[in-house]
């Protein structure tokens, strides 16, 4: 005890005497990351806003300062509003479904034992694939001619559907592929949160002969409230940035039904070369996402 106290005192003396030198050492430890952070994250964030105030072309040197004209154009851009609606629709399907599915799977597979470890492994496994593998797999599954579901439909005598080409089915199809791809992460978050609920509360409930439903509602769900909010916010932010699935599975079609914000940004910038206009959209998306994250921080601080 005393030795610990003296060593703390010694350490404090150390920091006081050699402080200037310690600062330099500390900054040297920080320097590599901070340099990369400033150049490749902070600077681009501001220069993105700067680019959005220009008529700026991807190739060549054409750039002209036009103030907020890009933002005024955006306001009047019917396709931009459509992509916002599409993205919001996609998020409003995937976020609740993903959260519910992740929670249901977490409750089902959190138990001890080999079988459940394998099951956890299976449901998480699809998250390690890249977006192009996921879209390849699901394009094959949903293909109206040679797809897995088409084969199944034919074998029971139903006419196969080309899901990705149908206006009604295209968006739900992207949502299903996204659920399959992404459920592992929120599931693992829920499992970790569930495991932190003290076991003795459950034991007390068992002594009271509380029903399963009551235990779930009164103990389990309140116990994971913070994780629930975290998962919701992470999912909203993630799903609003959806790009690869629409780009590779439907190309935004049919008739722009599945075109998302990020896909429109990509097309505007790298197909039409208008990176000034594309940057204005990116800024709008960023402000949107940033506000959602702030809401989470605010909710989190209110609870503590």
């Amino acid at each position: 005890m005393t030795s610990a106290r003296t060593s703390v005192a010694a350490a404090e003396m150390n920091t006081h005497t050699g402080s200037r030198r310690d600062w330099i050492v500390a900054y040297l430890f920080l320097l590599p990351f901070l340099a990369v952070y400033l150049v490749f994250l902070v600077y681009p964030l501001f220069s993105g806003f700067w680019i959005s105030l220009h008529d700026w072309e991807l190739v060549g040197n054409f750039r002209e300062y036009i103030g907020f004209q890009n933002y005024r154009d955006l306001w009047a851009d019917v396709l931009f509003w459509k992509t916002i609606r599409n993205t919001a629709l996609f998020a409003s399907i995937t976020v609740p479904c993903m959260t519910a599915l992740a929670l249901a799977l977490a409750l089902a597979v959190r138990r001890p034992g080999r079988l459940y470890a394998v099951l956890r492994g299976v449901f998480f496994a699809s998250s390690v694939f890249s977006v192009s593998v996921v879209t390849l797999v699901w394009r094959m599954v949903l293909d109206g001619d040679r797809g897995l579901l088409a084969n199944l439909f034919r074998s029971v005598g139903i006419r196969p559907i080309g899901f990705l080409g149908e206006p009604f089915w295209a968006m739900p199809s992207l949502a299903v592929a996204t659920l399959w791809w992404g459920v592992g992460l929120p599931m693992a978050l829920f499992i970790a949160a569930l495991n932190q609920i003290p076991q003795d509360i459950y034991e007390a409930a068992e002594l009271d002969f509380a029903s399963r439903w009551k235990v779930l509602r009164r103990i389990t769900l309140p116990g994971i409230k913070r994780t629930f909010v975290l998962v919701l916010v992470l999912q909203i932010v993630l799903q609003f940035q959806m790009f690869g699935q629409a780009q590779l599975m439907t190309k935004g079609g049919p008739a722009d039904q599945t075109r998302t914000i990020v896909q429109y940004i990509y097309d505007t910038g790298f197909r039409d070369w208008q990176i000034g206009y594309a940057s204005a959209m990116a800024v709008v998306l960023f402000v949107l996402m940033f506000s959602i994250s702030m809401v989470q921080l605010w909710l989190g601080s209110k609870e503590d």
Binding site: L41, P44, L45, W56, F243, G269, I275
Partner: peptide
């Protein structure tokens, strides 16, 4: 500085990929 670095967690890739592209160009 720590808060400044943490704030970067809220910057999605999509917000910076165009300026990054311009930078590397």
């Amino acid at each position: 500085l720590f808060v400044f670095v943490l704030a970067g967690l809220m910057v999605p890739e999509q917000a910076v990929f165009i300026p990054l592209h311009a930078l590397f160009s």
